[in-house]
Write a protein that binds this DNA or RNA. Sequence first.
DNA 1: ATTGATTATAATGTATACAATTAAGGGAAA
DNA 2: TTTCCCTTAATTGTATACATTATAATCAAT
Lengths: 225, 225
Amino acid sequence: MNPYTYIKNAIIVGHYKPGTRLTEKALADELQVSRTPIREAIKQLEVDGLITPYKKRGYVVKSFSIEDIRQIYNIRALLEGYATGEAALNRTEEALGKIAYKNELYRQAIDSLNREDIETIQHIQRINQEFHSEIFLASGNEHLISMIERVVVVPIIFRSFYWYDEHQLMRSLQVHETILNAIRNHEGDRARVAMEEHIYQGRDDVIAALRKQDILSDSTSESQM
Amino acid sequence: MNPYTYIKNAIIVGHYKPGTRLTEKALADELQVSRTPIREAIKQLEVDGLITPYKKRGYVVKSFSIEDIRQIYNIRALLEGYATGEAALNRTEEALGKIAYKNELYRQAIDSLNREDIETIQHIQRINQEFHSEIFLASGNEHLISMIERVVVVPIIFRSFYWYDEHQLMRSLQVHETILNAIRNHEGDRARVAMEEHIYQGRDDVIAALRKQDILSDSTSESQM
DNA sequence: ATTGATTATAATGTATACAATTAAGGGAAA
DNA sequence: TTTCCCTTAATTGTATACATTATAATCAAT
């Protein structure tokens, strides 16, 4: 695993918690490589918005306020909604088939979970993401896809604090069906709106969970030092 | 000027044309620095989507097809439109004043140009950009601003191939007025739609100009080697 | 002449030494 | 005690040498 992926993962799983100070040397020692590849990783993470320079004393893992999360999810809703609308207009039969297939996998994963099979919530989240990705691919806008990839990183971090209940999973599956049908029928607006609603729902679930667990820092995204 | 800014500028002004092959060593020699800072710049330019790795033989300056430009402008319309709508809803009096001020500067710049004063088209473009930026700031969504900054790089490249006539500048000024008024009156939808239309107009002007000048490569954004 | 394997070379990837910067700590003076 | 300055140490910034890798060129064999 390359340094970028390693550090990003460490942030996502909470090994490097918000506010943690990171230095090139410490990371180089931990990953057993020289500073050069670490620097490369750090620059990328800075672009991703996961860390920020802290004076001349290294970097800190960013904290996100509830307002940050709200803003990021709103952008997600905008971009993913647009992508879904475009997918409904531009899809090929082949792309539709792939989306339908991913959705079938999603249904099975949720069924398994409800039957207390081995499926994990992580697995469901992965399948869910693949469903979304297949839609973005069908939109035919490559630049849009790379934009979405960027705005989706922070939600991934916070989704891991969060445990979906059965009811939420069933509702999520229903919305997937709605989206899939709208794409099948070339209903751009319907597809867009359904996806937007889907994202807003996720936003509110995550924020509610964070409020309850009191996990969040009070900081805004401004550096508070 | 740091290597990143230097190279980016060189690409924007056409010194490094699409398809040009760049190597770390050649850039290091040209900028009289070692490979280390060049590598850093290259990584950023890769994220910006301005260059792509070319096998193990360096990097090439990306070409953009008309379809690429269309897609990128569409994302711009989406993001800037949303930002403008949010600005209309969230603006403070102070933010409104700043937007109005930039628009006044814009009017003056265009007037000067029409009177064949010293103002250049570059100057007008800069003021125009400041007007837009002031709106994004007023939206109150910091993450949105950084997304827009990324999607605006490619349009900047292609705007420089393009010479606005007096009629286009006047129309542009009128749309600015419409947007400003909508923001003043807290009309979110009106503001959003006006901005979207403004961007689409720019998109079509640029594409028409490029078609006429036959400047574009036929490549898609996929690497064609 | 064409194809395949081998070699050479050009490029990125990595490690490390050194330079520059700046924040922090300590000491002296007010 | 507090403030200011100076020193020190920690950290990033840069240059460069070396390692690795993959392309392109060469040459031999069919």
